[in-house]
Amino acid sequence: MKGVLFVNLGSPDSTDPKDVKKYLDEFLMDERVIDVPYLLRAFLVKGIILNTRPKKSAAAYKKIWWDEGSPLIVLSERLQEKVQEQVSVPVALAMRYGNPSIESGLQELANKGVTEVLLVPLYPQFAMATTETILVLAEKIRLKKFPQMSFTELPAFYNHPDYVRVLSTSIADELKGKKWDYLLFSYHGVPERHIKKSDITKSHCQIDGQCCKTPSPAHQFCYRHQCYETTRQVVEFLGLKEGTYSTSFQSRLGRDPWLQPYTDATIESLAHKGIKNLAVVTPAFVSDCLETLEEIGMEGAEEFKEAGGNEFYTIPCLNDREDWIKVLARWVDQWALTPQEA
Score class of each variant (00 low, 15 high):
62 K>N: 05
124 P>H: 04
25 D>R: 15
224 R>Q: 13
158 Y>T: 02
38 Y>M: 12
280 V>Y: 02
137 L>W: 03
107 Q>P: 00
223 Y>E: 07
207 I>W: 08
274 G>H: 09
237 F>V: 03
155 P>K: 10
157 F>E: 06
75 L>D: 00
223 Y>S: 11
283 P>R: 07
67 D>Q: 14
178 K>F: 07
275 I>N: 00
304 F>L: 04
3 G>W: 08
340 Q>K: 13
162 D>C: 08
315 I>V: 14
122 L>G: 04
210 Q>K: 15
58 A>I: 06
266 T>F: 05
199 D>M: 09
208 D>M: 11
72 L>E: 01
99 N>R: 14
310 N>C: 12
86 Q>V: 05
76 S>K: 01
311 E>L: 13
177 G>C: 06
17 P>W: 11
139 E>F: 10
46 K>A: 03
322 E>P: 06
237 F>D: 08
272 H>P: 00
66 W>M: 15
281 V>G: 00
10 G>S: 08
112 K>G: 00
8 N>Q: 07
198 S>E: 05
207 I>E: 08
289 C>L: 06
320 D>Q: 07
59 A>Q: 10
203 S>V: 03
70 S>K: 04
175 L>Q: 07
154 L>R: 14
107 Q>M: 13
102 I>G: 05
50 L>I: 08
249 F>M: 07
277 N>V: 06
1 M>V: 10
309 G>L: 04
139 E>I: 10
207 I>K: 11
60 A>N: 11
173 D>M: 13
270 L>D: 11
119 L>I: 07
302 E>C: 00
146 F>Y: 13
315 I>R: 04
309 G>M: 05
206 Q>T: 13
81 E>P: 00
219 H>R: 06
273 K>N: 12
224 R>E: 14
94 A>W: 01
53 R>V: 11
156 A>C: 12
222 C>V: 10
204 H>V: 03
6 F>W: 04
192 E>H: 07
323 D>Y: 10
115 T>K: 15
252 R>C: 00
338 T>F: 03
38 Y>Q: 12
19 D>K: 06
179 K>Y: 09
258 W>P: 03
228 Y>C: 08
47 G>I: 05
311 E>C: 13
296 I>Y: 03
264 D>C: 02
41 R>V: 02
264 D>Y: 01
46 K>H: 14
131 T>W: 10
87 V>S: 11
279 A>G: 06
52 T>N: 12
273 K>P: 02
137 L>E: 15
40 L>K: 14
335 W>L: 09
150 S>C: 09
96 R>L: 02
60 A>E: 10
317 C>A: 15
117 V>H: 03
265 A>F: 12
341 E>D: 07
117 V>D: 02
10 G>E: 08
165 R>Q: 14
176 K>V: 00
242 E>H: 09
255 R>T: 13
97 Y>D: 04
265 A>R: 15
148 Q>H: 14
312 F>V: 01
113 G>Q: 06
87 V>H: 09
126 F>D: 05
86 Q>D: 12
316 P>T: 06
188 H>Y: 05
